[in-house]
């Protein structure tokens, strides 16, 4: 899927540039794009490292297990039939906690681990299971308590209170999540009825 999106982005860019006469700018973008990505990585490096370190401390202090216990009712509701004590459920809890803290990139390692466990439960089939889809949808509609990156950017551009945006983000992200999960549940049911 990404193969097509990535390829299409570049092909469409070439065609569009040819029509609008922006081939020089396109060439420039090809050489500056990599540099822009590296600059972004460096600016994200501090935040990600700080929170990864804090997460490790929280994990060893037993705080993550505590969060997992808090999240269990949610796991039971959303991932029907998944054993809440399985390693998959544990990794899902860690991923959700990291996401909730606004650490999108720190959540990725946990997410990849969760996918590996869910894939094993699915006998490593090439067709996605309901749980896998639910998990990915959950991750594409993230709920964060602390949007740290947004806060950092807002303070950089002189917001008097960079975090006053939070209630709006909470409401929007929770409703977005509910929409995504309901859509997912409805489509799962639809497919089962067809079979």
């Amino acid at each position: 899927m990404l193969d097509y999106i990535w390829g299409l982005l570049m092909l469409v860019s070439f065609i569009s540039s040819a029509f609008t006469g922006r081939m020089e700018e396109l060439t420039q973008a090809i050489f500056s794009g990599g540099a822009a990505a590296v600059t972004l990585c460096i600016s994200l490096l501090g935040t990600i490292c700080l929170w990864s370190g804090l997460m490790r401390v929280a994990d060893q202090a037993g705080l993550i297990r505590l969060v997992s216990r808090v999240l269990q009712p949610f796991i039971r509701l959303v991932f029907r039939g998944l054993d809440p004590d399985s390693p998959a459920a544990g990794a899902i809890c860690m991923n959700i906690s990291a996401n909730v803290l606004g650490l999108g990139n720190a959540a990725t390692p946990f997410g990849l681990q969760a996918m590996r466990h869910l894939s094993e439960e699915n006998q490593n089939a090439p067709v996605a299971s309901d749980h896998m889809i639910t998990f990915v949808v959950l991750n594409t509609a993230s709920v964060q308590i602390l949007p740290t990156t947004i806060g950092m950017l807002r303070s950089k551009y002189g917001a008097a209170n960079p975090m006053d945006i939070m209630p709006a983000i909470w409401i929007t992200s929770i409703l977005t999540l509910i929409a995504g999960l309901s859509m997912n549940a409805a489509l799962c049911k639809l497919r089962r009825r067809r079979l």
Partner: peptide, 16 residues
């Protein structure tokens, strides 16, 4: 990120 951002940068300047 480098692969995707380069593609997106290209996409942005192309006018598409």
């Amino acid at each position: 990120l480098i692969g995707l951002i380069t593609a997106v940068e290209m996409f942005k300047v192309s006018g598409a």
